[in-house]
């Protein structure tokens, strides 16, 4: 039973990660490969706080989000000046730097990471069962979804999509493209970091591998499979892609190569959807990635 709840927990966390990345990729046309890095920042800040200072849920979430904002500032200031493929490459660079920090700093415990994170507390209540933690993850996903919906349906959301279509035209209308991109980049990082907080509390032990480049690619795979520019698609794909390896357990695959088979199927999905179905499962547009 606990395992089923854990899978549900992962679905909720990846839904949050995918929604927040979709705001960049699908709505604004910013193909970021640094989402796992932002996720990791939240996770590590939470682990460090909980191990050393406080495991108050609200406080750790807020401070992790603040860390996400700080790091996204460092990433955004240079990266957002670049267009197209060069933005992608710059975020890939930052992703690798962040990973290298996790891997090599003494503070983050190097390759072994950090473990023994205590259960989070909120107003005297301790979330110590996996069900309670699952509910937290669902709550975060719901908040993220609702706010993202609000953002995309607002005049600001209209500007996001306008930036995706034609940046020069947006600036000719008196709107600062940089401000628009900057705002959404930070918003996205806040939710990725918050997802990191809940991830840390869920599994109580973290290591750098969970926040590596291939993790960023996995998150973008969810966005593309679900459909760029579709929040519902991101939720649906998060659920399906987390379920996929579970479903494959019914197949006669040797346990030894199961992780590789999982990675290969994700890779195949990514290739299939980019090649044959670029609107994703329920996306609006064929070619959002412009």
């Amino acid at each position: 039973m606990d395992y089923v709840i854990y899978i549900g927990n992962l679905m909720a966390l990846y839904a949050t990660l995918a929604i927040s990345l979709n705001l960049l990729v699908g709505y604004t046309g910013l193909i970021s490969i640094a989402q796992a890095g932002m996720y990791g920042i939240g996770a590590y800040i939470t682990a460090l706080l909980a191990l050393n200072f406080t495991h108050d849920l609200l406080l750790t979430t807020l401070l992790s989000a603040a860390g996400g904002v700080a790091v996204s500032l460092v990433v955004a200031l240079p990266a957002l000046r670049l267009r197209n493929e060069y933005f992608l490459i710059a975020t890939m660079g930052f992703q690798s730097i962040i990973y290298s920090l996790f891997m090599n700093l003494e503070l983050t415990g190097g390759p072994n990471g950090l473990w023994g994170v205590p259960h989070p507390q909120l107003f005297g209540f301790t979330f110590n069962t996996s069900l309670e933690k699952f509910l937290l993850a669902v709550a975060l996903a719901v908040v993220c979804y609702v706010l993202a919906l609000r953002v995309t349906r607002s005049p600001f959301g209209r500007l996001l999509r306008a930036v995706r279509e034609d940046q020069t035209a947006v600036s000719s209308l008196g709107k600062s493209v940089y401000r628009i991109k900057f705002s959404i980049f930070i918003f996205s990082a806040i939710f990725a970091a918050a997802a990191g907080t809940l991830y840390t509390y869920s599994i109580t032990a973290i290591d750098p591998v969970a926040f590596a480049l291939d993790e960023s690619i996995f998150i973008i795979t969810i966005v593309i499979v679900g459909g760029t520019g579709s929040l519902n698609g991101s939720v649906l794909a998060a659920v399906l892609l987390i379920l996929l390896p579970e479903a494959m357990k019914f197949l006669p695959i040797p346990a030894l190569i199961a992780p590789q088979i999982r990675q290969i199927s994700y890779g195949l999905l990514l290739v299939f959807f980019t090649r044959f179905r670029r609107q994703g499962l329920i996306g609006e547009y064929q070619d959002v990635l412009k």
Partner: peptide, 10 residues
């Protein structure tokens, strides 16, 4: 580019 990542993973 993104597709290429998929191939790399495979």
């Amino acid at each position: 580019m993104i597709s290429s990542f998929g191939v790399l993973i495979i």
